[in-house]
């Protein structure tokens, strides 16, 4: 095993939900900073990725996070009408609604993805949303998408082989 590729969790922690968050620079990231300055305490399961605007959140980022083992994804943007870039958050909302259908088809429960409007002054709301979501993820249990994808791959390979063998037999 390459150095640095083993899990940083020790088995003693048991299973811990992994929540990846995409926060916009102006509202939600600042709110999370405020939560820090106010020393509000919340679950350490969240990992924040800073983007300039929630409009930058490409649906592929969300899928990538799940594919890399996230159990939940949280997107945080400015309240409607408050976007630093006028309307990026509306674009985020639109994409988010479309993505919902795709995730359902992949068997990803809708509680695993959440879009929240949190303004720069709402540190308390960051705490609330993160804790709530981590609790929900705990209740849902691990998503294990990477393993599932491997299983799907194996299924596909097996299927291909069968079809191939039948084709050969026919010849």
């Amino acid at each position: 095993m390459n150095p640095g590729t083993e899990s940083i969790y020790s088995p003693a922690h048991g299973w811990q939900p992994r929540l990846v968050a995409f926060f916009c620079n102006w509202c939600t990231y600042t709110a999370a900073d405020l939560a820090g300055v106010s020393r509000l305490k919340y679950a350490p399961n969240i990992r924040v990725i800073r983007l300039m605007c929630s409009g930058r959140v490409d649906p592929q980022f969300i899928l990538e996070a799940f594919a890399r083992g996230a159990d939940g994804v949280l997107i945080g943007g400015c309240h409607p009408g408050d976007c630093h870039y006028v309307e990026g958050n509306y674009k985020a909302l639109r994409r988010f609604q479309l993505l919902g259908r795709l995730l359902r088809d992949l068997g990803i429960e809708e509680q695993r993805v959440r879009l929240e409007w949190i303004s720069a002054s709402e540190g308390e709301r960051v705490r609330l949303v993160v804790n709530e979501m981590v609790e929900q993820l705990r209740a849902l249990g691990p998503l294990n998408l990477p393993e599932k994808m491997e299983a799907w791959d194996r299924e596909m390979t097996a299927l291909e082989e069968t079809v191939h063998a039948e084709a050969l037999a026919a010849v």
Binding site: I8, Y9, S10, H13, Q16, A32, D33, A35, G36, V37, R39, L40, K41, Y42, P44, N45, R47, V48, R127
Partner: peptide
Amino acid sequence: EHNSWVHNDRELATVK
């Protein structure tokens, strides 16, 4: 702001 000020559990905070 996103870690030591908002978490208590030293082990999990270090993992994060």
